[in-house]
């Protein structure tokens, strides 16, 4: 049962990582235009840095 001492923190840590990623995405406006973002990857023009 000692394995629990590793497994539980790992499972909670992984879940927390997912939660943090979601919170980051939410606060960084990643869900503002999902339809546009899906279309944008088909663009042929590249940019070297993100737009303002």
């Amino acid at each position: 049962m000692e394995v629990l001492a590793y497994l539980i923190p790992i499972s909670i840590g992984l879940g927390g990582l997912g939660l943090l990623a979601f919170i980051w995405a939410l606060t960084h406006r990643q869900y503002d235009d999902p339809k546009g973002d899906a279309a944008r990857m088909l663009n042929t023009d590249y940019d070297d840095h993100p737009k303002v």
Binding site: D33, K35, G36, A39, R40, N43, D45
Partner: peptide, 28 residues
């Protein structure tokens, strides 16, 4: 309605004098 439109509108607007940046929101 498509990726081509995003590109045309954004690039086209950025060529206009006085426009610093243009960002399309396709959903809205």
């Amino acid at each position: 309605h498509c990726a081509g439109c995003i590109s045309t509108v954004e690039r086209g607007l950025e060529r206009l004098d006085g426009v610093r940046a243009a960002r399309v929101n396709l959903g809205l």
